[in-house]
Amino acid sequence: MADAETEREALLAAIANVADRLAAEREYLTDLDSAIGDADHGTNMDRGFEAALEQAESTDGDAAAIVKTVGTALVSAVGGASGPLYGGSIMSASAELEEGIAPETTVAFAEAYLEKVQDRGDAQVGAKTMVDALVPAVHTYKRSIEVDDLPPVEALRKAADAAERGVAFTVPLRAKKGRASYLGWRSVGHRDPGATSTLLIVEELLATAEEFLDEVDGGSDATAPTEPDIGADDAETENGDAVGEEGE
């Protein structure tokens, strides 16, 4: 991204957007969790990001320092297993942003974050956890940036799309990890709360990127993106979009 000041502004906006969204969806997440968990995911995530925003705003450092602050705030404010999964993973992946925010560093951040979540939670795709939203989102983002050379906003849009499909994929699965696994077959038929909160976060990163990034420059080749089967592209692509508008 551009200068440090813009970077900071964008990051804080992203954190605020995530915090607002989680506050708005608090009851929804808690309802999902009460079906297969212990009915506190919405409350915990809301409390966590409220603390994260407050602490991030009073951090003076660079992008990596701000993101690390978010991680430590989540670790102490979210609690349970989500605290270390979200907070601890953000904390340790924050080192990837030491060179600032750029397509390559955000891919590295996303990969480091995913690796940490999987390592800590010991969960593979299909265990009905946040990993089911995260793996498709991160893989799609990486491919979109590194292979298809898409602009970051477009890459994030595809990542959010992939995450949404991942969340839907959790519904018919039997949980193998987390509290939901205690329910055995009774966990089938429910949307995973952790995958859902992961999707909400990716969607807000996208919304923030749309606000701050000019998506016309960056993705040089004007050809339609070659999307594998996760495709079903949303209508708007490079051609029509002006600066910074959300969809239409």
Partner: peptide, 14 residues
């Protein structure tokens, strides 16, 4: 317990 194990692991890192 997952929460205990993950929080201790994260604590060791911190």
């Amino acid at each position: 317990y997952e929460g205990d194990v993950m929080n201790f692991e994260t604590a060791a890192e911190m």
